[in-house]
């Protein structure tokens, strides 16, 4: 999966850093702390750039390499910033046999981006995901917390317009 280091400069704030350190204090000392800390950090920053990983490594007193190897192993962790609206198309089996592959292709074409990328204006990010467990509604996509089920390709324009696409 495309998970390359971003070229967008890091814009973390003091408040975010304080929040991160607070989260680290909760887990520090526990065995297996790294993954929950990374999950908290991603909630705070939206992604895990080099700067955030470095802070975590220093605070947990582990090497940067240990942090980076875990970040790049799990699909949930992103080295790329999130968009304002994050579109996630399910390519799980039930959705795939009902044509979610076509929906994903169409979105790539419409937005002009590939899997795991963000539009240049930072508005939309597109990801393929593996099963959100809503197989009864296949094919499914989510945009932030909104779930769209029983999708067809011709509904996409209408749905994207709700999020200000094409304006």
């Amino acid at each position: 999966m495309a998970n390359t280091i971003t070229k967008i400069p890091f814009k973390g704030t003091k408040e975010q850093q304080e929040e991160l350190f607070k989260a680290i204090d909760v887990y520090a000392g526990q065995s297996g702390a790294l993954i929950p800390v990374l999950q908290e950090a991603q909630k705070i920053y939206g992604y895990l750039p080099y700067e955030v990983q470095k802070m975590i490594a220093e605070k947990l007193q582990i090497s940067m390499e240990k942090v980076y190897e875990v970040v790049t192993f799990y699909a949930q962790f992103s080295l790329q910033p999130l968009g304002e609206y994050n579109i996630s198309v399910c390519l799980g089996t039930a959705c795939y046999v009902k044509g979610s592959g076509n929906i994903f292709d169409k979105l790539q074409e419409k937005l002009g981006i590939k899997n795991g990328e963000c539009t240049p204006d930072g508005k939309f990010r597109l990801d393929a995901c593996r099963c959100v467990g809503a197989c009864g509604l296949a094919p499914v996509m989510t945009i932030n917390d909104d779930v769209y089920g029983r999708l067809t390709v011709d509904q996409l324009d209408g749905i994207l317009a709700k999020y200000g696409f094409g304006k």
């Binding site: 799980g92 089996t93 039930a94 795939y96 593996r130 099963c131 467990g133 809503a134 197989c135």
Partner: peptide, 8 residues
């Protein structure tokens, strides 16, 4: 960790 796509 129900990762099997299509299972819920």
């Amino acid at each position: 960790d129900e990762g099997d796509p299509g299972a819920f």
